[in-house]
């Protein structure tokens, strides 16, 4: 196997191991038995089909946001606005689902479509500002996250509010996404995986995807070789926004059913982190998202069974990110590379 590829897979695995090691030390320091705690964590996440369903359901929105990040970064632009695009998608979806009077499959299709378009529109703003004003797309897209969050606030406190609690009315039952095998996870998960495969196919098996990656790796050379660089940048923003917008719609129709304070909070940056750990590989991003969801779902069981607080799981998640980023940086160092190659060749001879 290609050595670079080998290391790029090895590093995240070692990072995960190290992060768990630190997690175990913390657990021990809290007076819990790390083995028992990890066992509980595993059981909570994958112990039975019901828990697996819960894990996949938690993973679904993360898959969407990490694919959103992947797609834009492959074209060399940092879209940190996945959360805003996710929320705008869900807001538009919520409006149509509750106000249009259409129900059932047509409603689902219409909602998801419009949610995607809304997300794409929201993502086009930083894209256009970057291309035509030279502005930093990261800061613009983050500002738009806040605008989207607050706008959603207007929706659930005011425009579509139902009753005394600040939340919107619920999506009609006929328009909800169907559950898979009676589990918590719905067809939204299937949509997410299909989009992941489509993104993978697009990036690696189509001419356009190839050119988009070329633009992401070297914009000047791409321009000299006749690629429409600006168009690709805008395109990648919009598609990544569409993915997030579809994600927001699917989350609303599949899991939450109504907008409420905290809907989708943090998913944007989670997605960015997962895309980075997956090294922008869309299929890996799906696995990473499931892994993180498992840590989150399992930690509740762990807390109940062993008293280890769920925040230990948060620390492990954070450490995985930091170790991976630092680790990938390290294997690129010439000295480190040389040392690894020595070990590598020594191992081969033995």
């Amino acid at each position: 196997m290609n050595k670079n590829r080998f290391f790029s897979i090895l590093v995240p695995f070692i990072s995960v191991l190290l992060a768990f090691l630190v997690g175990c030390i913390i657990m021990a320091a809290l007076g819990a038995n790390p083995a028992t705690a990890l066992g509980a964590l595993w059981k909570g996440a994958f112990g039975n089909t019901r828990n697996v369903g819960t894990t996949l359901s938690r993973a679904t929105p993360l898959i969407f946001t990490s694919l959103c990040a992947c797609f834009a970064y492959r074209c060399g632009v940092f879209n940190l606005g996945g959360e805003g695009q996710f929320l705008i998608g869900s807001v538009v979806c919520c409006y149509i689902a509750t106000q249009s009077g259409i129900v059932g499959l047509p409603a689902i299709i219409l909602c998801i479509l419009c949610g995607g378009i809304a997300g794409g529109f929201w993502a086009a703003i930083p894209g256009l500002l970057k291309i035509y004003r030279g502005q930093n797309e990261m800061i613009i897209s983050i500002m738009l996250n806040y605008v989207a969050t607050l706008f959603m606030g207007v929706i659930y406190t005011n425009w579509l509010r139902e009753g005394s609690v600040p939340q919107t009315m619920s999506v009609p039952d006929e328009s909800k996404l169907s559950r898979l095998f009676g589990l918590r996870c719905t067809s939204a998960f299937v949509i997410a995986v299909v989009i992941g495969i489509l993104v993978y196919y697009f990036l690696f098996y189509t001419s356009m995807g190839f050119q988009l990656r070329a633009v992401g790796l070297n914009m000047t050379a791409s321009q000299f070789n006749g690629f429409a660089v600006k168009r690709y940048i805008l395109f990648s923003f919009i598609i990544s926004g569409v993915i997030a917008g579809v994600g927001g719609s699917a989350e609303l129709l599949g899991t939450q059913f109504r907008l409420i304070n905290g809907f989708g909070a943090g998913y944007g940056f989670d997605g960015v982190a997962m895309a980075l750990i997956a090294q922008l590989h869309p299929l890996a991003a799906i696995l990473v998202a499931i892994f993180f969801a498992a840590l989150r779902v399992g930690s509740t069981t762990m807390q109940a069974a062993t008293g280890v607080p769920t925040s230990v799981s948060e620390i492990i998640q954070a450490l995985v990110i930091v170790f991976t980023v630092a680790g990938l940086a390290m294997v690129k160092l010439p000295e480190f590379k040389a040392a690894l190659e020595r070990i590598f060749s020594a191992g081969k001879e033995a």
Binding site: R213, L217, N218, T220, A221, S222, F224
Partner: peptide
Amino acid sequence: NKMGLIGNM
């Protein structure tokens, strides 16, 4: 390097 090749490809 800058204009001709995509170094990471």
